[in-house]
Amino acid sequence: MHQIITAPITHRRLIWAMAKREIAAKYKGSVLGVFWTFLNPLFMLAIYTFVFKYIFKARWSVPEGSAEVDFATLLFAGLLLHGWLAEVFARSVSLITGNVNLVTKIQFPLEILPWINLVSSGIQLLIGIGVLFIFMLFNQIPLQPQLLLVPILLLPLAIFLLGASWLIAALGVFIRDIEQFMMSFITVLLFTSTIFFSLENAPALIQPILQFNPLTVPVEAFRNAAIFGTFDNWGIWGIYFASSVLFMLLGFAVFKRLKPVFSDIL
């Protein structure tokens, strides 16, 4: 636990520098460069609005007293969090196998690679959230005071993703098939969460099952607080937070246990 807390503080400059380098490398050679981090979510939101508002004319049952919100806005809010998870999961598979040169450097702290992964993908999430809020203002959807709670509400998801990144990165060294599995698993998480519907609208029988999906609680919390301003389910949030911390500790323990043999396998 001590290393989990001290590592990002001790190596904060290195983490930030490598996170920025990863984002720049992702768009290297493109005409607009890192500006695509803003354009991509903007294009997604425009497409969702066109399809769900003007073609499907989809509606979402909103809490009593809340303003009417387009289905596309609510869908986009959920997909932002799924995109964050998908980015972290997909990149974690090759986090060690794709950085063999760092594995062979005795002085390099491999434990910070998941931190770099989380920060670089988190920056893109923040840009997407910014696009969402601008779109809400453009459509005269009032910004709620509960927006201030968003960093707190998303903290358990960040902790969970950090633990998942350590775990997936370590297992990816030994199980190369995990890359193929991960693509399917990410899709399963998309359709078994509440991104396309609210938890209240799901059959009561499967609501407890849906809450085992690591996206359900943060998606519901983010959507309700940022868009409807109605979040008050701190009990479920507290359970999810505690579970995320335990999962993070498990992921870090597995990573530390397997780390000494990384160089032998690679």
Rank of each mutant, 00 (worst) to 15 (best):
H2E: 12
Q3G: 13
T6P: 05
A7F: 11
A7P: 11
P8S: 02
I9N: 00
T10E: 08
L14R: 06
W16D: 06
A19K: 01
E22Q: 14
A25L: 15
K26C: 03
Y27T: 04
K28W: 00
K28E: 02
V31G: 01
G33W: 05
V34I: 09
W36I: 00
T37E: 00
F38S: 02
N40M: 08
N40W: 09
P41C: 07
L42F: 08
L45A: 09
Y48N: 03
F52N: 02
K53P: 02
I55R: 05
I55A: 06
I55K: 09
F56Q: 12
K57I: 06
K57Q: 15
A58N: 10
A58I: 08
W60L: 12
S61N: 15
S61G: 15
V62A: 15
V62H: 09
P63T: 08
E64L: 08
S66N: 04
F71G: 09
L74F: 06
A77N: 02
G78F: 05
G78Y: 09
G78C: 02
G83W: 04
G83A: 01
G83D: 08
A86R: 14
E87N: 13
E87R: 14
V88H: 06
F89D: 04
F89M: 14
R91C: 06
S92M: 12
V93E: 08
G98F: 05
V100S: 13
V103M: 03
T104C: 01
K105A: 04
I106S: 13
F108A: 00
F108K: 09
P109D: 07
P109G: 00
P109W: 06
L110S: 10
L113F: 11
L113H: 01
P114E: 02
L118Y: 08
S120R: 13
G122S: 08
I123Q: 02
Q124W: 01
Q124R: 10
L125S: 02
L125P: 10
L126D: 01
M136F: 06
L137M: 09
L137R: 04
Q140D: 05
I141Y: 12
P142D: 00
P142M: 00
L148P: 03
V150P: 01
L155W: 05
A158T: 14
G163Y: 08
A164P: 09
A164K: 06
A164C: 11
L167R: 10
I168T: 13
A169M: 10
F174I: 04
I175N: 03
D177I: 09
E179M: 06
M182D: 10
M182V: 09
S184C: 00
V188P: 05
L190S: 02
L190H: 07
F191S: 06
L199W: 12
L199S: 08
L199P: 12
E200A: 15
P203I: 13
A204R: 15
L205V: 15
I209L: 15
F212M: 11
L215V: 07
L215G: 05
V217T: 14
P218I: 13
V219E: 11
E220R: 14
F222E: 07
R223L: 04
R223D: 08
A226K: 10
G229R: 03
F231Q: 07
G235L: 09
I236Q: 13
W237H: 03
I239G: 00
S243T: 10
V245A: 11
F247E: 01
L250T: 12
G251T: 03
F252A: 11
A253K: 13
R257L: 07
R257T: 14
R257E: 00
K259Q: 15
V261W: 02
D264A: 04
